[in-house]
Amino acid sequence: MDFSRRDTLGLALGAAALTVLPFRVNAAAEDRIAEFTGGAEMGEGGLTLTAPEIAENGNTVPIEVSAPGAAAIMVLAMGNPTPGVAQFNFGPLAAAQAASTRIRLAGTQDVVAIAKMADGSFVKASSTVKVTIGGCGG
């Protein structure tokens, strides 16, 4: 669509009405991914990352990862000061290659999960979590 100056201003004010913290990205995250995958291509599918759309509080955000048949799943918080969150390595007695936990997110960002499948291939899933400022005094 064509935007006049008035339109752009209006849109910007509308966007400001969303009280979310600015989107964060961390360059070190790419290094972590390369380290885990050895530079291999990552496919999609077979990996579910469940995270809330809006985190009630960034200090404790419940997430779940699930990838049937995976050997390991790595989780990164792409906008945290240090992106590493956890790596779940499944043993022979894991009934499902799935786990739930609670994580800290410094601000609105993408949470990324990468699964290393039994055949050595990699798949990736990503979820944007909005982290909000609440109440008085945050």
Binding site: N59, T60, V61, A77, N80, T82, P83, G84, V85, A86, Q87, F88, N89, F90, G91, P92, L93, A94, A95, A96, A98, A99, S100, T101, R102, I103, R104, L105
Partner: peptide, 30 residues
């Protein structure tokens, strides 16, 4: 988490795991 000497799950944890770390997972019991 191990069961009778066999691994169920082995988690590497980093600072982004919340205070009072919580994990839920499933295990097969032979």
């Amino acid at each position: 988490c191990e069961f009778n000497g066999q691994s169920v799950i082995d988690i590497t944890m980093e600072p982004a795991i919340s205070t009072n770390p919580y994990f839920q997972f499933d295990a097969t019991v032979p």
